[in-house]
């Protein structure tokens, strides 16, 4: 195990959206800060830094996590996906397209985190019920939309049944 003295930087290698990236961070650096500042993944938004709002949600090793509650050093060797991975060739995926169609975002600050949580849900359960979607979106705070358009968009993306 590496032992670091105060002020030492740890080298971190991880896979971000399919690409190998590396950087250096103090052991106390938050993963959210590392992804934004060292990796340029500014789609990771920091909204509360205490794990409630969900803006910073990413998928790490196949699980949706709050990147403000993880340290950068914990991501050594991890496979991380952020919102930047969802439209690799610039074409919105079905969920993103449904968000646009249903006006499921206004300021857009909470949106990346919600998208990542929904992507995580769909991988575990491709046909979730409305209640499950509400439950997952219930882990995020959004102040603009009032949520209903987000739920409608997710339902539409999943089975085209939303109005």
């Amino acid at each position: 195990m590496t032992t670091l003295k105060p002020g030492d930087l740890a080298r971190i290698d991880l896979t971000l959206n399919g690409e190998a990236v590396s950087g250096h961070a103090e052991p106390r650096m938050l993963l959210a800060d590392f992804l934004r500042e060292k990796c340029g993944a500014t789609g990771v938004h920091v909204g509360c830094e205490h794990g409630v709002c969900g803006c910073c949600t990413i998928v790490m090793n196949g699980v949706a996590v709050r990147s403000c509650l993880a340290l950068a050093v914990q991501a050594e060797g991890a496979v991380i996906e952020t919102v930047e991975s969802l439209a690799p060739d610039g074409t919105l995926n079905a969920m993103q397209e449904a968000f646009r169609k249903h006006h499921a975002l206004q300021c857009g600050f909470c949106t990346p985190g919600i998208l990542m949580s929904l992507i995580d849900l769909l991988r575990r359960n491709p046909k979730p019920e409305r209640e499950e979607i509400v439950h997952v979106v219930g882990g995020h705070l959004c102040r603009c939309t009032g949520y209903s358009n987000i739920i409608d968009a997710a339902m539409d993306a999943i089975n085209g049944t939303a109005k």
């Binding site: 952020t82 919102v83 930047e84």
Partner: peptide, 15 residues
Amino acid sequence: PRKEDAALLTGKGRY
């Protein structure tokens, strides 16, 4: 639907 959304949905907003 909005012009603004393409950037915001892909993490390319400029806050």
